[in-house]
Computed example of a mutant assay.
Amino acid sequence: MPVRDAAARTPVIEVSRLSKRFPNGTQALTDINLRVNTGETVVLLGANGSGKSTLQKCLTKLVEPSDGSVRVLDTEITTAGTREITALRREVGVVFQRINLVRELSVLTNVIHGSLGRVGGMRNWFAMSARKDQRDEAMESLDRVGLADVAQRRAEELSGGQQQRVAIARMLMQQPQVVLADEPVAALDPRAGRSVMDLLWEITEERGLTLLCTLHQLELARAYGHRVIALRDGAVEMDTVMSEVADEQLQGLYTTEEREEFPSRGIFEGAA
């Protein structure tokens, strides 16, 4: 069931009959059709191996689609050349499960790296040599995620939740239009995960960004998802508003073993 007001907004992601078959014969995606509109926050849900990460990677051509059409910010991914893809990736911020900070460098330098795609130049490889306006912008991004006071510390000295906040600040420095988050809290404890999810949702809403967030955890999907697109075995199982989905439907996306891994709802309620 589509979201009722979806047609009223401009699509920034349009996927039509997308399929991906890897050289080893694995059929990761089959006939995927979806549209995400400007300013939407969408949860992409499914079990491990359902095709979530492959679908996200197809959106920026990190994975080459086998068939179909993928259009992001008016760029047709399947026919775009290297220069077009590079330009597109500047407009698409990514928050990874593996945080991918340069652990030995300062927090401030890591955040400044987010501007490399739009500013470039060797000066921005390190905070001490970056232009003052770049340092100021990076400090503003760190302040937004509540970490301005640790700007000079090495990234490896921070907790996992703090590191993911730095990664969000780095994404803000990129000034993207679209954000792809790939299980951004899978490696965090429930309290830190809830805090990072709150921050990510707040920032995308206040800046009018479009967010497609891949999740494995049913409880987080239920807590944060307004619209949910669920995959099963590489195909779209449902595309609807979360309030219209019964728990049994969501649980049906997973095997018995996977369902037993999920914490009870109470763990996430009231977490900061």
Rank of each mutant, 00 (worst) to 15 (best):
R35Q: 13
H216E: 08
V70S: 09
P23N: 03
V178M: 13
S53A: 06
D143K: 13
R170M: 03
K52R: 06
Y224Q: 04
K20I: 14
D189F: 07
L250A: 01
L62R: 02
E244R: 13
V102R: 10
P23A: 04
R71W: 00
T214F: 00
R131P: 01
A186E: 06
Y254V: 01
I32W: 04
F96M: 11
R131G: 14
V12T: 05
N24C: 04
V166A: 10
D136M: 05
R21L: 14
V92M: 09
K132N: 09
D143W: 00
G225F: 11
D67A: 12
E104Q: 14
N110Q: 11
S50H: 03
T79P: 00
G93F: 00
N124I: 15
D136E: 15
E91L: 12
I229D: 06
A181R: 08
T26H: 10
G121M: 12
V179E: 08
D133A: 13
E40I: 04
I85D: 09
L200R: 08
S141C: 15
I168E: 03
R232Y: 01
V241T: 14
R98H: 15
G160Q: 12
A47K: 09
R17S: 15
K61M: 10
M197I: 10
E248N: 02
V111M: 07
T109L: 10
E76C: 07
E205Y: 01
I112M: 02
S129H: 11
E206Y: 07
G81E: 12
S16T: 14
R232F: 00
Q174C: 01
V42Y: 00
T255I: 04
M122K: 12
I99S: 05
G193S: 08
N110W: 05
G25C: 06
V36I: 15
I32G: 12
A8P: 00
